[in-house]
Nucleic acid binder design. Structure first.
Lengths: 351, 351
DNA sequence: CTGAAAGCGCTTACAG
DNA sequence: CTGAAAGCGCTTACAG
């Protein structure tokens, strides 16, 4: 009858296992780590005891020697309520968590007010808790990126392209995707197309504006960008009213919104003025969230490959952790234009 | 001119600081931990050096002694795509992260396929990486809860009430909230009210069904529950068609859906049969997600206090970590009924 | 193939 | 008030 260790009293150490197997701790260590230099017989006997006792080597003791945490921090600022009206994070976390878990790495989620973020992250890096950092919530001017670079902490941004430095990032091709969206509206017959953008401190929004302008200019049309604002339906509502209230000759017949939430506000504004969507005003979104699928009418939008972006962010982070100079350190994944009723059918057909 | 240690070459240890201050490591340790027994002069000098050098004591070395990780695992199964169509998790994580961060605890996010979840979590508990576990994704029959109890791992469930054991949980009062919602529909003049429920393995769904039945029975009306299904618009769509196609005398004039997503499917089904919402069919949702706010018509629904639930889960977890027998270990927070157009105005007024 | 010993970076009685 | 030493639970040269 096997002597089952009472797990309630004390935790087993490597010395307990060594004693049970009548070997030294070093030998047990070699077995745990699948290292050579242990006889077949001995190895089997030790393995059996480990299994039987449910022994697990202490994570911290191992890390103390390895001088690594095998943990990556995923950092979000909690303050802006925009975080929660931005329903893409669960899927992103899934992608990051999968890739990290597959490599036996731990995902440390850090949600912290924006004004405490830098201090908190730098401290956790300094005390050895974090081997690397993934930042999906960065806008231009955030000093945390520079601080992490100075410490030579492996870092990857998601959804923001850092132009000034060599910091790694993974992003979606916002510009190309929204250009394609805009060309779709042009092809369908629109000549007056407005843009309701999000905050331009996000490089994603700057890119969306650029893609929108490029598509119009290429077609010989005039961009008509509204003031950028927050990722909110309220912003979409107000900006759209401004556009609708323009003189008839300038009034857009289609609006490209920088997010699904903004687009929903645009639709509300149109409705409040008695305009039908898409017949009187076409509207498109971005993100392909549930809102896009279930709003009325359903939104033409751009689907962002969040799971893949999470995977790639981890992939690049690992390569940098292995070699600080590793290349490539940036990656652009394609968004997919999803056509739904909100952009209407061909206006030429309607005439 | 201060001797600035080159952080690039090697990490500072407590001995480096001790040497710089010409004291022993023990004295530095006492300063770091704000313990008494160090002279004012010495303490100030050591503090200055620590500050100047940017020294941070190794997290792992400290934890090895403390035999605690100061980390809590938040576990999600990634397999069911329902996770991502359930847009309440970001807010829940915010609440949990806040509370954990305030206590200088780390949040370890574990996203793992359902069939590997138990093994993974138990291993991370066994190797000392996790001091406690929060499970927001549990349904009845999940064996992980029993396994964690056997190991005496501090555990708190969110959104699921474990009836068989003493496991701690935090939940919303699904039954009361949905009873109130149902009474609202009754007050407005409905007598035939159907329920389109989610998966009944979630105690939340069982509770919602119970609340719905209680409200109807109390009013002398007959419950008419559809088969439960997934938290999807497709389920809402199909189930609603079944109800609409009933003989006129049995056909409901209002539907209580177990989630906003389901409710959106219900509305689509009504529309596909040429019924107007809410005039011909009233529909209510649950969760108060963005869908509820922006669907057409906007949904009457129940707002769930996710941030507070996250806070309370951490609070209870901490109390259990301090004392395994701590009470109370369950907590019910109130949901709030939010009335929007989808439930219509008084039918009596219409007649 | 196996063991004894030193060491990872801290903390904590125990002396003085 | 301060230091020297032992120890947390592992791993890793170094002997044999």
């Amino acid at each position: 009858m096997p002597v089952v260790h009472d797990t309630r009293t004390k935790k087993l150490t490597i010395h307990d296992i060594a004693r049970m197997a009548s070997v030294s701790a070093g030998t047990v260590s070699r077995v745990i780590n699948d290292q050579p230099g242990v006889g077949e017989q001995t190895r089997a006997r030790i393995k059996a005891i480990i299994e039987e006792q449910g022994y697990q080597a202490s994570f911290f003791a191992r890390n103390l020697l390895a001088r690594r945490s095998f943990a990556v921090g995923l950092v979000f600022s909690t303050a802006p309520s925009e975080l929660f009206s931005h329903p893409v994070y669960p899927q992103l976390m899934g992608g990051i968590g999968d890739a990290l878990g597959a490599a036996s790495y731990t995902l440390t989620l850090i949600t912290v007010p924006a004004d405490e973020r830098e201090e908190r992250v730098l401290r956790e890096v300094a005390d050895g808790r974090l081997d690397g950092v993934i930042l999906p919530d960065i806008r231009s001017g955030d000093t945390i990126v520079d601080a992490l670079r100075d410490l030579e902490t492996p870092t990857v941004l998601i959804g923001h392209r850092d132009a000034h430095s060599d910091t790694a990032w993974v992003d979606c091709d916002h510009d190309h995707a929204i250009a394609e969206l805009t060309r779709h509206l042009i092809a369908v017959g629109h000549t007056h197309i407005g843009l309701v953008n999000g905050p331009e401190e996000f490089s994603a929004c700057a890119l969306r504006a650029a893609g929108y302008r490029a598509a119009l200019t290429d077609a010989g049309l005039t961009p008509r960008q509204e003031q950028p604002g927050s990722f909110s339906a309220e912003h979409g509502y107000r900006a759209t009213l401004n556009l609708i209230d323009l003189p008839l000759a300038e009034r857009p017949t289609a609006i490209v919104a920088a997010s699904d939430v903004i687009a929903v506000g645009c639709i509300e504004a149109a409705r409040s003025r008695g305009l039908r969507v898409p017949d009187d005003l076409a509207v498109t979104g971005f993100d392909d969230t549930m809102l896009a699928r279930y709003s009325h009418p359903p939104l033409t939008t751009v689907s962002v490959p969040l799971t893949d972006m999470g995977h790639m962010a981890v992939h690049i982070l690992f390569s940098i952790m292995q070699d600080k100079q590793a290349r490539p350190r940036t990656m652009v994944l394609p968004g997919e234009v999803i056509v739904r009723p909100s952009s209407g059918v061909s206006r030429r057909l309607l005439q």
